[in-house]
């Protein structure tokens, strides 16, 4: 089977790579040694952030190298790392108060609401909305809106106010998780039940069953349960 090759530009040099490649597989195909800027290759780790422009489109776009399929005449550069201030704090000593951002990330208040962060986010998060929520100390909203952030850093690289959105969000999620989120008691309850021997008999029964009976039980199990 032959695959069509298409032209792309990497660091401004022209190469031909198989159609349908992702940025990462194209780099591998061309023999680039990837020591940085690649990770899980499944779109989860955020290590392979890349910037690109498509032919005939002025928009500078961002994407994960492992998830972005190359197109003819596409210009690509990898952004393996974005230098960013990272606050050092002891979470136990903090209070869920908007003053936290004033102390650790004062540049947050330089936000111009230009939405450039949202435009570039490969996770399609409402980045500016969570930055604005942080400005007014709404930890819950920051946590919810930034939950899928994989800290690729593109927002920070593009921000005209030089904010590090991903670190601000991380701080907010930690505060939210530690002090504000409703605590779940299910795990504690279940551990107590196990310790009290509630499931001993059930286990013994299962252990005594034949493979055939186990299969029956498996297929008849209740699967439409509700997590409450």
């Amino acid at each position: 089977m032959t695959q069509d090759l298409i032209p792309i530009y990497i660091y401004s040099r022209k190469y031909y790579v198989p159609e349908g490649s992702t940025i990462i597989t194209a780099l591998e195909y061309l023999g680039f040694k990837l020591k940085k800027g690649v990770g899980c290759k499944e779109g989860f780790c955020g290590a392979c952030a890349s910037l690109y422009r498509l032919k005939g489109d002025y928009k500078l776009k961002g994407g994960l190298g492992c998830q972005t399929v190359v197109q003819p005449e596409m210009q690509i550069v990898q952004i393996p790392f974005v230098p960013a201030p990272k606050a050092i704090y002891k979470i136990e000593e903090l209070q869920p108060d908007s003053e936290i951002f004033v102390r650790y990330y004062p540049e947050l208040y330089r936000c111009l609401s230009c939405n450039t962060c949202t435009k570039i986010c490969p996770q399609e998060l409402q980045v500016m909305d969570f930055v604005q929520a942080a400005v007014r100390g709404d930890f819950e909203q920051v946590a919810n809106l930034s939950f899928d952030c994989i800290m690729c850093g593109l927002c920070s690289a593009r921000c005209p106010a030089e904010i590090t959105q991903f670190n601000v969000a991380m701080l907010a999620r930690r505060i939210y998780g530690k002090y504000l989120m409703k605590k779940s008691t299910f795990l504690e309850q279940r551990l107590k039940e196990i310790e009290s021997g509630k499931y001993e008999e059930g286990y013994r029964e299962l252990m005594s069953l034949s493979q055939e009976e186990l299969k029956n039980r498996y297929f008849q199990r209740e699967i439409d349960f509700q997590i409450t």
Partner: peptide, 17 residues
């Protein structure tokens, strides 16, 4: 989804941002 108003009205005529 409201955001900061801009905090102080900018008198800079050539900085639309």
């Amino acid at each position: 989804r409201w955001n900061c108003c801009g905090a102080v009205f900018s008198l800079v005529t050539d900085d639309l941002l």
